[in-house]
Design a binder for these strands. Structure first.
Lengths: 394, 394
DNA sequence: CTTACTTAGTTCGATTTTCGTCAAAAGCGG
DNA sequence: CCGCTTTTGACGAAAATCGAACTAAGTAAG
């Protein structure tokens, strides 16, 4: 028994593109499938496109997601930037834009900025506001996902407990998902990129270090939504490094972008931040290269433990520092393959992210898409639609 | 729309115990619920028991799992022991028995032993063989769960790729689930014990150290079924300890039962194995106490990292060494609360397991029960039953 | 160009499933 | 004993689903 939501799921995943195929895959009668499809078309989620290639008989009519009328907005909020992306529910990027923006300015100005950019992008892409079904936002700090409230975020003063979704839901008829930025990145990697993995770690190495976790095909957020905070795991042999968290020997204090910049500066090679370090590496500065490779080994040390514990099939590295991935990954791989168990590393891939600059925003958009297209939510929406339409028709 | 399987799920979880309650919970018509229940009763999975207490009107008839006719067998295989437990599908222990048995003897003798014990326990409990719907087996090594084949298990020579389920499925009409022993323990803790947690780590500290992972309410096995192998994570400041895995500084080489026994012996207090260490601790030997507490700190060091990464709501400690849990847990807690982030430790509980000696077998049994009662499997079984019965009746 | 064949989609009556109401059952309280 | 409440079973009504027949739209062979 497949509900309309399940049908839509098959269409959106590309598992079935025509009525006949849907009938074969679900095992339901063709007439029933046709009726389900009609419902979805009437509701505006599915469209009939061109007729496909014949396989010896009447050519099928291809079904597609109604990408013209259904979009989402993905937002990547960083400490000093804000990227907003407009995507259709097929996952295609329609338009995006990045601006410098200090998250420390507080919720209202930042959310107003997002709001403005959303309208700009909609105008640019020629889509109406009503086409936006959901907004996904990735923020650089812990969030209670269910309510969309940041929880004591270290680098987001003024955001603690702020109900981010309310800003938009009080103005527009759409849904808002707020999550940690690394979770968005991880989701984007498995659902948008080509890395098909049910168990994946997305390691973001920027100023700090964080990790998005896909466990059994689903995002793992942990009990308090604090999962993935690997920046403060202790690195063997680095007890002298003091971390902003108050402890010593944290991974972030050893291999984070800020830490590398500081160490490089101290060694006589001035570097303002992580990006500066990356630039030095690109230009072949031997000291910077050595430091980054060493950082890779430190990160690898922590990841080796996590590989034993979690047994992922892929580790994807992103973030500012990942731009220097040849040297960084060399160090990471070196230690992982040395320290992790053969069974766990046997088929493990360690690779840089394929998503570019817009990765975070695309991942956040994917979060929104997954929510909009979730079979349960579709069925609920259709039921509400039918209940609202039927009495009005009488 | 709740299928018969879902109905059974509600009954087995205790969420609804009468037809009226089921109707309220599922939102389906009472007549529909009654029909579903009839199906389950006819199939022999549910029984009507005594009438419950009236709440002012006709007293309801209480529905229960048909525990008389449906049992499972849970098996805990250790390096040197084999515990077999007979449970009903309600999770109640009917009979169990433990024998010394070297797993190195190889698959056939060991499985024959299990087979014999199963029949003994059945006779003892007065249940027919046909009542056994599934067997769950926890083994001390990595297993490909889907096929029930061990994968290069270090302490199980001769078991590599051996198809354990076949031994039983070729003889009897039942299903066999084989998993790592720590996974069984973890499952037993959340489903059998009182620790209700969607994200839990069960840390087994015996000769070696392993960890069962519950992520989002489900067992996390990882890509190769190798997840939870925390015994070979590197402990900061222990690089001198050589491990049997070939590396140095592994947790197991520092805090495992075998390592502790060796260190204690070296210090002039002879101890044969982990259990001997525990005995010494119980008798108040100061050296042993100090060592165990130190081991707790080392384990805590690794767990602190995993708490940051995984953000569980509970850590449960079991295994031989956990018998000395006052001192062990003191060390574990000490380091975790010092090194993990406040948000992650805020509501974290660290406690010894409540399951006793039979924990492993009970957990393995729970694995079998969960499989038997899984809504999808129930619906499949009912469909097959109906398809087989209907044509015969004509 | 026609004809046979194949596959896709639609229509509509038959069947099955589910619902909702009604009545009977079974206890409580006065 | 009688009204009240709650549970359960029964049965006709309503809805969902199926399946077969039919139409549509192509390919391939002669």
């Amino acid at each position: 028994m497949s509900s309309p939501g399940d049908i839509l799921d098959l269409i959106s995943r590309g598992d079935a593109g025509t009525r006949a195929e849907l009938a074969r895959v679900t095992g339901m009668a063709r007439s029933t499938v046709a009726q389900r499809v009609d419902t979805l078309i009437a509701y505006g989620l599915v469209e009939e496109h061109e007729t496909g290639a014949s396989t010896g008989g009447r050519p099928p009519r291809v079904l597609r997601l109604a990408t013209e009328r259904n979009c989402v907005v993905g937002v990547d909020l960083g400490a000093t930037h804000c990227r907003v992306a407009l995507m259709d529910i097929g996952g295609r990027l329609l338009a995006d834009r990045e601006d410098p923006l200090r998250i420390t300015e507080g919720p209202e100005p930042v959310l107003r900025h997002i709001d403005d950019r959303m309208h700009e992008l909609l105008a640019q892409a020629g889509r109406p506001l009503a086409a936006v079904k959901a907004i996904g936002i990735g923020v650089p700090g812990p969030v209670e996902f269910a309510t969309g409230r940041p929880v004591n975020p270290p680098i987001m003063p003024g955001w603690h407990e702020y109900p981010i979704p309310d800003y938009f839901t009080s103005r527009y008829d759409l849904e808002v998902l707020v999550d940690n930025d690394v979770n968005a990145l991880a989701l984007g990697e498995v659902r948008h990129g080509s890395t098909a993995a049910d168990n994946l770690l997305f390691v973001k190495i920027g100023t700090g270090i964080g990790c998005g976790i896909i466990a059994g095909g689903r995002l793992h957020r942990g009990a308090q939504g604090a999962a993935g905070d690997i920046g403060h795991i202790r690195v063997p042999g680095a007890d002298s490094a003091a971390c902003r968290c108050g402890n010593t020997g944290c991974l972030e204090a050893v291999a984070g972008g800020a830490a590398l910049a500081a160490r490089l500066t101290q060694a006589g090679v001035p570097a303002a931040d992580g990006r500066a370090v990356v630039d030095l590496v690109s230009s072949g500065d031997p000291m910077a290269v050595r430091l980054v490779r060493e950082a890779g080994r430190d990160i690898g040390d922590v990841l080796a433990g996590l590989v034993n514990f979690f047994n992922p099939e892929a580790i994807v590295v992103g973030g500012v520092m990942a731009a220097a991935h040849e040297h960084l990954l060399a160090g990471v791989r070196e230690v992982i393959y040395q320290r992790s168990l053969p069974l766990a590393t046997h088929r493990l891939t360690v690779a840089p992210t394929e998503a570019g600059e817009a990765g975070g925003a695309l991942g956040a958009g994917r979060l929104a898409i997954d929510h909009v297209l979730a079979p349960d939510n579709i069925d609920r929406a259709l039921a509400a639609h039918a209940a609202g339409a039927a009495p009005a028709a009488r």
